[in-house]
């Protein structure tokens, strides 16, 4: 089944807020070999001017992919997840995520482009904090091959 072109422009969420925790920041920092003490030691993070542990640059993907899950599992969009390859990704941060943030996310299907048996699906996740202030924008394009 091809990806449904009519899904372009749809939005999903906001979903239950994601709580950024010290434990998850440390675990993610270990997984991507981010060595800074500001990811691990609260005193170091505070000495650098942050309220709490600072998340690594791409930590927001955890939050964005939870939101994007609603797009790729929507039967009316028609993404066959076994045929998906990640094509591109971009993070634009207003400020870094820090432990204690409660992040609400809305995800938009910005474009669906079909060509030669591949649908390029671009989503944009907008992350806002508990005060409603924007924190990050995460843009992701999936290449969905259509089954032969």
């Amino acid at each position: 089944m091809p990806v449904n072109q009519d899904a372009e422009g749809r939005s999903y969420g906001p979903f239950e807020p994601y709580e950024v925790t010290r434990v998850k920041i440390r675990e993610f920092a270990d997984a991507v070999d981010a060595y800074s003490g500001a990811h691990r030691d609260v005193a170091v993070a505070q000495a650098e001017g942050y309220d709490d542990l600072v998340a690594p640059t791409t930590f927001a993907v955890i939050i964005a992919q939870r939101a994007e899950f609603h797009v790729v599992t929507d039967p009316d969009v028609g993404v066959d997840f076994s045929m998906v390859v990640h094509a591109d990704e971009r993070f634009t941060h207003v400020r870094p995520l820090v432990a204690g943030d409660l992040i609400s996310t809305t995800v938009h299907i910005d474009s669906i482009k079909q060509r030669a048996g591949i649908a390029m699906v671009t989503t944009r996740a907008e992350l806002v904090d508990q005060d409603g202030a924007p924190v990050s924008t995460v843009t992701s394009t999936l290449a969905v091959r259509e089954a032969a």
Binding site: H39, H86, A87, E89, R90, T139
Partner: peptide, 15 residues
């Protein structure tokens, strides 16, 4: 590691 934690405000790639 060069920029310092929290100082990369934008990062994009193509796979």
């Amino acid at each position: 590691e060069w920029a310092g934690a929290g100082n990369v405000s934008d990062f994009q790639v193509r796979f």
